[in-house]
Design a protein around this nucleic acid. Structure first.
Lengths: 135, 135
DNA sequence: TGATTTAATGGGAATAATTATTAATTAATA
DNA sequence: TATTAATTAATAATTATTCCCATTAAATCA
């Protein structure tokens, strides 16, 4: 007998050590690492892991709502903290910081989620400036 | 006699037809075109223009504050309207719309420009959702 | 537990956006 | 108009990311 219906559209989600180690690492840091950085760190625990596996899983985590991305320096950076918060990107050192202070949650557009052009599902706020260390 | 001091750090900014036609096009639309789109349109007026020239100038416009970018679909999209406004990106058709309605300008973080992590120079707000046409 | 099914991986090639290089061109100005 | 350096065209190089596919290994059940 089939393990699952042949005509089922949804795939079974399998847990693998690769997935778990990638996600564990992401959850353990607040540095917003790039895919390349995740790869180099995870490679220490799983020396045979493929770069494609890292990219594929990071993308999947995002789709599943287990991570979000911040684009900086021409590449994606990942954040496993999906709670509502903004990001601050330093124009000098390029580090990415979390901003939990009232990130516009009281603004009418965000509250209503319906600007003239459509209906908001989610949003991103990025601040650019000089971090404490750099200035 | 030298046209400018040899030890001067700053370059002279020269007006070229390429620059003007690219910027004129950008200012004439509110569609937030990608570099590739700008290239294909400008190419009609300047058939011999190089893709590198388009990319170089778009980048320069941004640096000089004559344009801003919105990253979507893995590439940069350009907007010559540098007034304070947010963007709405449709998750279905991927079109980018301007949102001029109260884009969080009253939020304390943005007003004070000083979250805990540093000093804000500028910021970007992107909304993601479904536009009028798509839903 | 072993067999079966198929999702996930590894490794490398492919793709796409952007940047670098450099010889030739041209805008600004004396 | 001649000079000088900024800009361009053309193309090669780079970089981040995705695709491809043979192999591996979760999940399930007999």
């Amino acid at each position: 007998m089939a393990l699952q219906l042949k005509d089922s559209k949804e795939q079974i989600y399998r847990t693998t050590s690769q997935k778990q180690i990638i996600l564990d690492y992401l959850k353990s840091v607040k540095s917003h690492p790039s895919a390349e950085k995740v790869y180099s760190v995870v490679k220490k625990k799983l020396p045979r892991i493929s770069k494609a596996t890292v990219y594929r899983n990071l993308k999947d985590f995002k789709k599943r709502g287990e991570a979000q991305t911040i684009i900086s320096q021409g590449k994606s950076h990942f954040d496993a903290d999906t709670s509502s918060h903004a990001h601050f990107i330093c124009l000098d050192c390029n580090k990415i910081f979390d901003v939990f202070e009232n990130a516009c949650t009281n603004c009418s557009v965000i509250k209503n989620k319906k600007p003239k052009v459509g209906k908001i599902e989610n949003y991103k706020i990025n601040f650019y400036g000089h971090c404490k260390k750099c200035k």
